[in-house]
Design a protein around this nucleic acid. Sequence first.
DNA 1: GTGACGAGCGCATCTCA
DNA 2: TGAGATGCGCC
DNA 3: GTCAC
Length: 346
Amino acid sequence: MCADSSSTPSTFSSDSKFSSTSRKAASVLSHHPERITSGEQARQLAGIGRKIADKIDEFLQTGHLRKLDKIRASDVAVATAELSRVSGIGPAKARQLIDGGVRTLEELRARPELLNRHQTLGLRYVTEFESRIPRQEAAAIERHVLHRVAELDGRYRATVCGSYRRGAESSGDVDLLITHPDYTSDGAETGRRRTVDGAETGRGRSAAGSATARGSGRSAGGRLLGAVVDHLSQDGFVTDTLSQGDSKFMGVCRLPGAQYTTHRRLDIRLVPHDQYHCAVLYFTGSDEFNRQMRAHALEQGFTLNEYGLRPLGTTGVAGEPVPVGSEREVFEYLQYPYRPPEQRNL
DNA sequence: GTGACGAGCGCATCTCA
DNA sequence: TGAGATGCGCC
DNA sequence: GTCAC
């Protein structure tokens, strides 16, 4: 994992228990319906222990936290936060840069040789990526993309998910899900696509990349996704690629027309046809809505994830995925009152 | 006091045999 | 050169 | 760090 988080007492170590525990505590607190007036009160909540409760009391009494002040004052933390604005730079790369004497974006621009492709683009577009996408522009992107995909092959199905689908007035990026009847999870004919369910696989790394990289050819998924990306690049809409494999493209786009001056983050995922509705549900979110719906699924004896809805046997082992013909059907199977995307902002 | 736990996956890139 | 490890982004 | 044991 993190090379040596022990040697240098880092303020942010991404994988420490501290971060996830704090995240859990923060999540619990932020979802608590009532105002917290004492550490003792917060202590009653799941995930809040003595230390966090003490900090709540300190903040309530003094209006700030000594430890937080210290962290904010630390140069390394400031530099890490600054460098992490760049997409593709995380805690490890930031530390490496700081160790090499680079602490600001200005200094980073002077050392382009230190960055890989993703990071180079992240630096180029750092300000543009930080600006929100107004709903009107996201809608224009949606129209453009759906039109272009349809003219490429009318059998594609595509949906813009994320906060845009939930009706948000602005979005951070555009998340497009696409599917095609020729691409299914059983991988018949298309060649090697294991039936993914994400439940019992650990951190399984497959050799997905090698099939694409080799000259011989792309998988069915690679071709279907590649065709869409190529088509969207033809007219200049897709301007850059951060990464692209057989099933996921991450890149940059900008609509034609003088009124659109800002480059936007665009993700395109190719999803197996039989998993499409569960994927759309999942990628529409919100995070909290997904958690609640999954919890409800468990109570109903199902397991729900982006790959499908599966019944749980008496032993707790997941069975075969239930065929799902629409997002609404997932709700119905679970006897969960249907909520349109605009009402999933939890 | 001790051990389990924290999401998990796709892609790019590094590391090492 | 290829398998595995690591870093990163992301509901 | 927090929780269940």
